[in-house]
Amino acid sequence: MARIQLNNIQKRWGAIWGVRDVNLDIADEEFVVFLGPSGCGKTTTMRMIAGLEEPSEGEIVMDSEVMNEIDARDRDVAMVFQGYALYPNMTIYENIRFPLRMRGVPKEQHDTLIKRAAGLVELTDYLDRKPSALSGGQRQRAALARAIVRQPHVFLMDEPLSNLDAKLRQHMRVQIKHIQRELKITTVYVTHDQIEAMTLADRIVIMDKGAIQQIGTPDEIYNDPANTFVANFIGAPPMNLIAGVMEQGTFTAPGVRVDGLPAKHDGKVTLGVRPEDCTVTADGGHLSGSVYGVEPTGDMTYLTIKVGDKLIEVKAHRDYRADLNSDASVGFDPKRIYIFDTASGQRLR
């Protein structure tokens, strides 16, 4: 329904930077997720797309039209908020109807559209209730129905699932993705939850300190991180990052030695390896240390190994058990080792 372009977007409040030089081209019908820690600028960027904040510099373009000077109410976007933002004095029916009334949709269409939207989020039986009489999940679905009822050009969702419990979150995630695919509406979704980002997004935009760190599909972000921030932010547990020295294709750090790496990156580098790409070996692995913690989770065992003053996470077989402080040796999958420049944090390829 709409293509969104952010051209050199910046947001400053006096000396404080909110967003720096954001350039992004969101394709029609695409589902893009802004992912990053609190204060990284993801919500500010979304609010600028909605028209709730004005960029200090740069252009926001929707379908070739510059939107900077256009009021939020005149942009054809619908937003779902973290706190649901349902109007407390209105019933759910009236809440969903509100945008139809504001946009001058003919009255005779209201009932059909409201029931269709409520049906999509399975809320038809609750239309005559006030928001205070609904559970968190029902309120979130009501907020979603209010956003989809008038079929906007763009959906904006600001951490819509963060107030829900884990089970409900998983259910709502599937529902949101299904509705977005069905309605084919360009969607921008903000979250700090990497599982939401990985499962929902066509593309993920990872942000930190107001700047974009990497844009890519979930696979690209996970398997080909651009820097140590992305490598560390994505994955649970995150990627192990070990600072050391590379000399003619051999990486060394206290307790760690990896041979056969590309010889072109000599100097101070950081080696990255994901916990699932580590294998516990009898001995002679790439890393030797002592067992610091063993956490069985049922389907696997999280093993923490202390190497010098650093803790290394390993996803071991679910039957793996070891005594605390016993010796442990770990091998890395050589195809899944990442090398980063220690000073800049950028990936070395």
Binding site: R47, A50, A72, R73, M79, P88, R103
Partner: peptide, 29 residues
């Protein structure tokens, strides 16, 4: 009153007076 309510009303297409009359006043009755 949470600011989100007004932001939601704005993106729903309401102007300032409409927000005051339909959202804020009933909420602070």
């Amino acid at each position: 009153i949470p600011k989100e309510l007004e932001d939601a009303a704005k993106t729903d297409g309401a102007g300032e007076l409409r927000i005051l009359w339909e959202i804020i006043i009933p909420a602070i009755l």
